[in-house]
Amino acid sequence: MDMFLDTFLLDFQNRNSHHNFPSLIDYSVTETAEEDKTKKVSFLVPASQIDSFTPSPQDTKYKASILNFSLFYGKFQALRNISMDIMANKITAIIGPSGCGKSTLLRSLNRMNDLVPNIRIQGQILLEGENIYAPGVDIVGVRRRVGMVFQRPNPFPKSIYDNIAYGPRLYGMRRRALLDEIVERSLQQAALWDEVKDKLHHSGMALSGGQQQRLCIARALAVQPEMILMDEPASALDPVATLKIEELMQSLKSEYTIVIVTHNMQQAARVSDYTAFMMIDNPQNRTGVLVEYGPTAQVFTNPQNKQTEDYVTGRFG
């Protein structure tokens, strides 16, 4: 582990001095996985335990659990038997080659995939122990608890203020003083307040790309979600704006659980605490499977799976 910190990305240590990898890792579980290298999936939830495994809602360690999750678009199976736990107040990165179902998995976490016609799912996704795919679950409630930031900044064609207040207003908040407070707090959390406090009533579309993306993050924060999904949030931004988003993610994780899909492996290594590696299981059916999931340090320096190793060392993908 020390070798990792010394050799892999010096700034990793400096920027994330509060990272403390050894203590994060649940050694007991890790060892289980190391003994059982033949298993493809997940050091956290060995496949054999999936059926019996149910985190209790009181246990804050897991924010969400994906259990044996499969997803079909019509006849095409996009995801097969994915099981992983998402740790509370940590950043979990999902990496993998294009078309392996990373975004599909991410969008399953707040039921954004419901918009696609002919979609069918199997398995469960538990949010604080409750299956969000159970019949009768309120999708609006799920999406309120699980916010989302998209690849391209998508501010609404409204003022900065109205962009942030859109969510709270949706949930019936009308009092001006309260809205003002939420707008200010959300913008401060998204590290945008100082840049826009004098032009709250200007259009959100007049901001630069990086500012727009932080505005979208602030918009997601305004409804006080528990978990934030980020679908390649920096892929349309320049390096400086990317750095700001990454710093922002670090400052947000004390209050929120963050799941990020990224094509950029350096980014995953820099920002995340846990990394999941996904791949299509064979080129014919193009179904996405979870190959390896573990602490970021382990996935990048000591991957348990040959495919993961090939991918993170850049030998394919």
Binding site: N154, L170, Y171
Partner: peptide, 27 residues
């Protein structure tokens, strides 16, 4: 109108009619 704009609203929990009225039609 970009689909992502619509998704941004839906991801905040807005129902479709509200999204159409206050985001899509405005855009």
């Amino acid at each position: 109108t970009p689909r992502t704009l619509r998704e941004g609203s839906l991801a905040l929990g807005a129902p479709e009619w509200k999204t159409t009225l206050s985001v899509t039609l405005v855009a």
